[in-house]
């Protein structure tokens, strides 16, 4: 019935152009079309936060964003958080403090925590707990997650989220050049 819509977005610094069904959820674009399976789906009511990614630097639940809404944006997923072998301070802290068990909620939890630290670089325990209220974990009882976020906050770059690479708009020029055979 509905016709596909072209979408161009930058994910973890790489620009992708795809045709998608309008109803395609961003989380399924990331998982099924781009193979970025680190973002998980744990509910159908925008409750659990396991699908949390950043769109233009802010945490969103990618199960409640249409892929078409992400057209022209820069998306960062858990796969884009580390810089090469250098883990993000939050990843380090979750590992160090045993802030995860089954790991299913962890990518979303870390991405939500990154948003929290970007807004509030030096949060109290209470502020961390409230800052993570959109993410459910069944394994850890949150204790070590809170500890990890608190420890990560001691790192000067904990709130910094990498957005490497060109914007989709900038990249478009490169793509046009490539199509015309002028690219590398």
């Amino acid at each position: 019935m509905s016709s596909n819509v072209p979408v161009r977005l930058s994910v973890n610094g790489r620009v992708h152009e795809l045709d998608v069904e309008p109803r395609l959820l961003l989380v399924h674009l990331l998982r099924d079309r781009l193979g970025l399976t680190g973002s998980h789906v744990g509910c159908d009511t925008t409750s659990c936060g396991a699908c949390t990614v950043h769109v233009d630097g802010e945490a969103v639940k990618s199960c409640t964003v249409l892929a078409v809404q992400a057209d022209g944006t820069k998306v960062t997923t858990i796969e884009g958080l580390a810089q090469g072998d250098q883990l993000h301070p939050l990843q380090e802290a979750f590992w160090e403090d045993h802030g995860l068990q089954c790991g299913y909620c962890t990518p979303g939890m870390i991405m939500a925590a990154a948003d929290l630290l970007a807004r509030n670089p030096d949060p109290t325990e209470e502020e961390i707990r409230h800052g993570l209220e959109g993410n459910l974990c069944r394994c850890t009882g949150y204790h070590n997650i809170v500890r990890a976020v608190s420890d990560a906050a001691k790192h000067p770059h904990a709130g910094r989220i990498p957005h490497p690479g060109p914007t989709p708009e900038g990249a478009a020029i490169g793509l046009e050049l490539a199509r015309e055979g002028l690219g590398a």
Binding site: T37, G38, H40, I78, E79, L87, F94, W95, G103, Y104
Partner: peptide
């Protein structure tokens, strides 16, 4: 276990 889980590389 954690390196694969904190980087989104685990396989469910």
């Amino acid at each position: 276990e954690d390196p694969r889980l904190i980087t989104g590389r685990a396989t469910y």
